[in-house]
Each structure stands twice: as structure tokens, then as C-alpha cells.
């Protein structure tokens, strides 16, 4: 088991290195750089800029240098000093900008994942065991509606309804007085009174998908002979289902945890814009349009880290619940 983890860790480091390399290349792909965008904004405002100043800035940021040199400066800064560079647009170090937002992202989306599993698991088991019952059809219809409604539309709908019915606006994650406060009980309460809407919105589509996958897996497993064996032991039906087929049917679901987090981050961008959430998604979008390369690079890099960590977690979970994987990879 230790060797298994160790090998996964080495693979993880190599993957991260590749991700950083590609991430840096991607943010440099669009023609021009931050200064060209900056100049365009200035000149459209009618300001004139001294070419010498621009040249000095270009030198200072190292825009003229070859890719490898720029990459080396960036990555050595990250590894050596934990310095992700400067955000041109915000005129602040990237690190101070992203930690809070990334934290919010992980918090909201992590909770969305939990809610998703919490709702999907019992429903998925129920619909598989009671195949073609009324409950199955209802859950299927509801699931497909949840799957079909775009998240942002659901967000808009919730905003509208909560305004019409309760006269409150939902949006943001904190009230203004708690925005920059330290974590405390009132702040937590405030967070949840805001966060339920985005969490619910983010969880719906995923819940529907999870229910479908779990139902399909479980239907396959319920027919397997080992389920009959368990019944022949005299176990009550619920115990038969929960201990054996559900356990096996969970494997494919657990292996999806890895890419769930980054997928949620990227899919939540529009929802975050609509609901005005201080998460990483909108920041990434903004930094990409303004070619704020160090900020964009840092966020993409950290999303990569999330993916890799998620994959490691799901690998470990899989190895833990399925002995065939644990012993197969000796």
C-alpha cells in the first residue's frame, strides 16, 4: 500500500510539472501580451503613452525573452519563494488575490459535491431496487429535468423566486459586514444563509447524473450471483443490497471524484457571475480576457493541482474499497 501511494505521488509530481508547462504555454498563445491590451485600452481612452515607458515595462516584465526563460523565471519563483508573480491588472501579487477566492471555490464546490452525493446515493439505490416503479419514473423525470436545465438558468430562477416570494436577493457568499471578517459562528451562519442557493444550483445537474450512473451500475450488480448468495444466507433485503451490490456499484462513481472538483470549478463560472460569487471562476475569466498572464497561469496551475489531488484521492479511495485494485498494483 505504501509503495502504491509513493508511486502515485511521483506520478503526481511529474503530471504537475507537465501541467505547469502547458498552462504557461496556453496563456501565452493569444497574440500580443498584457501591455498590448493595456495600450489599446489607454489609446481608446485618448491617452498617449511614451513608447520608452512601454519598452521599460516590457523589459521589466521580461516579455521580450524566449518562452523557456520566461517559464523558468515563473516556475522558479513559485517553487523557490511561493511567488506566483504580479497581477498586472490588479497591481497586486497573485498570491494575495487567489487564495481567498480559491478557498471560497473549494468550499462552495466541495459542499456541492457533498450535497450531490447525499441526495443522489439514496435516490439512486431506491430507483435501482424499485425498477420501473412510480418512484423510479418520478426520479427519472426529475433527474432529466435537473440535467437539462442549465445551471445559470436555475440560478436566475432561484434569484427571481426568492425576490418575489421572500423579498430578499440571493447572491454573493457573505453579507458586507462579514466580507473580510475572520471565521466565526455568526460568519458561518451568514455564509450558509447565502451559500445554500449556489450549492443547490451547482449540485442539481451532478445529482441527476449520479443517480443515472448509480442506477445503471446497481441494476447490473443486482443480477449477479453473489447477491443471491447473500440472500440465501438469510440476510434482510436492505442489508443484502447495501452491503454487497451497492458497495461494488460505487467503484465507478468513486473514480469520478478526481475530475469532479475541476469540472465544478469550470462549470460554475457562469453561475458565479450570475450569483456574484467571490470564487475563482470569474477571476479566471477576467484574467484571460485581459491577458493578465500570471494571474491566469496561477489559477490554471492550481486547477491542475486540484485535479491531480482529486485523482490521487479517488485512486486511494478506490484502492481502499476495492481489494482487486489494491492487490493488482503490487
Amino acid at each position: 500500500m505504501l509503495r502504491f501511494v509513493f508511486r502515485r505521488l511521483i506520478a503526481m509530481v511529474l503530471t504537475l510539472w507537465a501541467v505547469s508547462f502547458v498552462a504557461f504555454a496556453i496563456i501565452q498563445l493569444p497574440p500580443g501580451d498584457y501591455l498590448t491590451t493595456y495600450l489599446a485600452t489607454l489609446s481608446s481612452n485618448g491617452d498617449r503613452v511614451d513608447p520608452a515607458t512601454i519598452e521599460a515595462l516590457r523589459q521589466q516584465y521580461g516579455f521580450g525573452e524566449p518562452y523557456i526563460v520566461q517559464y523558468w523565471k515563473w516556475i522558479s519563483g513559485i517553487l523557490g519563494r511561493g511567488d506566483f508573480g504580479q497581477s498586472f491588472e490588479w497591481k497586486a501579487p497573485v498570491t494575495t488575490l487567489i487564495w481567498g477566492r480559491l478557498g471560497n471555490s473549494i468550499l462552495v464546490e466541495g459542499l456541492a459535491v457533498l450535497v450531490m452525493w447525499f441526495i443522489a446515493l439514496p435516490i439512486g439505490i431506491y430507483v435501482a431496487v424499485k425498477k420501473y416503479s412510480l418512484g423510479d419514473y418520478l426520479a427519472t423525470v426529475a433527474g432529466f429535468i435537473g440535467l437539462a436545465i442549465p445551471n445559470f438558468l436555475l440560478a436566475l430562477l432561484l434569484m427571481y423566486l426568492s425576490f418575489v416570494w421572500f423579498g430578499t436577493t440571493i447572491g454573493g457568499l457573505f453579507s458586507s459586514e462579514f466580507e473580510n471578517a475572520r471565521w466565526s459562528l455568526p460568519r458561518l451562519w451568514d455564509f450558509f444563509s447565502h451559500a445554500w442557493a449556489p450549492i443547490l444550483v451547482l449540485a442539481t445537474a451532478g445529482t441527476a447524473e449520479l443517480i443515472r450512473i448509480l442506477r445503471a451500475n446497481l441494476l447490473d450488480e443486482l443480477k449477479k450471483p453473489y447477491v443471491t448468495t447473500a440472500r440465501a444466507k438469510g440476510l434482510p433485503e436492505w442489508k443484502v443490497v447495501l452491503k454487497y451490490p451497492v458497495r461494488v456499484a460505487l467503484n465507478p462513481l468513486v473514480s469520478t471524484i478526481g475530475w469532479l472538483l475541476p469540472a465544478l470549478v469550470s462549470s460554475s463560472v457562469i453561475v458565479s457571475v450570475v450569483l456574484n460569487l467571490p470564487t475563482a471562476g470569474p477571476l479566471l475569466l477576467r484574467s484571460l480576457t485581459s491577458q493578465d498572464m500570471y494571474l491566469a497561469g496561477a489559477i490554471i496551475m492550481l486547477l491542475g493541482v486540484l485535479t491531480v489531488i482529486g485523482t490521487l484521492i479517488s485512486d486511494l479511495l478506490l484502492a481502499w474499497i476495492d481489494p482487486r485494485i489494491r492487490y493488482g498494483s503490487k
Binding site: K224, Y226, T228, T229, A230, A232, G234, V248, D322, P323
Partner: peptide
């Protein structure tokens, strides 16, 4: 079941839980 009448099945691989 299991206590007074019990059963063995044909395929011992698939009749035992793999996990």
C-alpha cells in the same frame, strides 16, 4: 435460509462477493 436450509452455487467466483 442459511440457518436450516442453505445453498451452494455453481460458480464460486461470481457467487462470492469480490470485495
Amino acid at each position: 435460509r442459511g440457518a436450516q436450509i442453505s445453498m451452494i452455487f455453481q460458480e464460486p467466483m461470481s457467487s462470492l462477493s469480490p470485495v
